[in-house]
Simulated assay, not measured.
Amino acid sequence: MKKRNNGFLLASPALLGFLVFYFAPFLITCWYSVSFGIGKREFVGLVNYQELFENEMFLLAVKNTCRYMLVTVPVTLGAAVGLSVVLRHVARGVTFLRLSFLYPMIMPIASIVLAVQFFCGDSGFLNRMLTLTGMQGTDWLHTSAAFWILCILYFWRFIGYYVLIYFAKLQMIPGEYYEYAALYGAGEWQKFRFITWPLLIPAVLFTLVLSVMNAFRCYREAFLLGGNYPDDSIYLLQHFMNNNIRNLNYQKISAAAVSILAMLLLVSAAGYAVYRLVKRRRAYG
């Protein structure tokens, strides 16, 4: 009993900080999402949510954010798994490669965006080359191409970090597993399918959470590329929230925040249910 009380006392500063700085503001946000007014607020039920889901800019932001995640997260994680498996068989230069994977995360966002503008801007290198060949250039950062530029930035910036995580996990797999499988005639694909991939799944789930979090943090790149009102293809949820904060539209921001949290909880619950179902089927054959 004394050990339990000591543990609670040690955790109490973190719990108190969570209650004061996260949970209490979230309760206030929930109240703002179902009320209207300045100072003395009036309960209006789900009116704010109805107006939110009828707002074209919010629907566009949700669409673009989901599309961005569906493109960047699977491609980046899949490529990271492949590169980590290849890196495991590299005999020389492994230290240099591991260090080079972290360089994109160290570089400042502003310098990266400046490089993108140098190549893809209205008077950038790419348009100058097109002009020399007799073709007409375009402002790539204010067209639908901006979406793919943003995806490439995410891929280039985070793939090395995920490769290092997978590589560290692969180094923990005993080599005897592969030797034993080779004795029974298993090929490279069979080794990956029945040895590497099952043991790599926990790391993949961990990086999946990280990649979704990092995808929500892409606003800096999108803002520096297109400003507060970029091309429709890269108008994300962060743009919607930021623009409404500037307009002091607290009820719409609160309704959007609660809706986003609800969607994330539903997706997490569905993913956990699928995970438990698969685990149960494997346990009972």
Rank of each mutant, 00 (worst) to 15 (best):
F167L: 13
I165E: 11
C120M: 15
A182N: 12
V212A: 14
I173T: 08
G160H: 07
W189L: 13
V163E: 07
A168F: 09
S111E: 07
Y219T: 08
L183Q: 09
R157F: 07
L114M: 14
I201V: 15
P202F: 07
A186T: 11
F194V: 01
T143A: 07
I165K: 10
Y178N: 07
D231S: 00
L210T: 03
L170G: 05
L132C: 06
M172P: 02
A145H: 11
L205H: 11
L205G: 15
G121F: 00
T143I: 05
G187F: 02
D231W: 08
L153T: 14
Y229E: 11
I159D: 00
P174S: 04
A186N: 10
M129T: 05
L126S: 12
S233F: 01
F125Q: 02
A222C: 08
Q117A: 04
R220W: 10
M107P: 04
N127P: 10
L132H: 06
N228H: 09
E179H: 12
P198M: 03
P108G: 01
L130G: 06
Y166H: 14
F118P: 00
Y184Q: 10
M172L: 13
V163N: 06
W189S: 05
G124E: 01
D139R: 07
A182P: 06
P104L: 01
W197L: 15
V209L: 13
L141P: 01
Q171D: 12
A146T: 14
K169M: 14
F206S: 13
E188L: 06
I106D: 00
G137L: 09
Q117T: 04
G134R: 12
A186F: 06
D232L: 02
W148Q: 04
L132S: 11
A168V: 12
S123I: 01
M135E: 11
W140E: 01
C218L: 15
S123T: 00
N127Q: 11
Y162F: 15
A182H: 10
Y162K: 03
Y162P: 07
